[in-house]
Amino acid sequence: MYVLSFLFCGFLCLIAQIIIDNTKLSAGHITSIFVSLGAFLDIFDIYDKIVSCVGGGALVPITSFGHSLIHAALDRAQESGFFGLAMGMFDLTATGITAAIVISFFIALIFRPKN
């Protein structure tokens, strides 16, 4: 599991580094592409399989953000039909987004911008 986490996470960063070195895309483009990629891989359940064999390491890259979005949406869609897609969209990622907003707000109150 640990070796697979290392390899998987490192591999994604390697691809991103190759893209940024050889094209004109910036880091913002690449993260957006990777999020969409994570959601795309879940059409055929591929990312779920990766998570079950790689373990925690597969949850760390930004691709897992897209995966969690589509996963939560489909889970709710099973229960409440078509509108569940929109209702359950943020079920799993809400914690991450809330944490990021709250933590960064309080840290911004404490620290001053450097440089």
Binding site: C9, C13, G56
Partner: peptide, 27 residues
């Protein structure tokens, strides 16, 4: 000249270590 090969290796190792920490924390 930016050395692309060393950039790739650094990105691979750093990303891998963060993935490793993630897995360790989950466990």
């Amino acid at each position: 000249k930016e050395n692309r090969i060393s950039n790739m290796i650094i990105a691979f190792i750093v990303g891998g270590i963060i993935g490793l920490i993630g897995n360790l924390l989950v466990d």
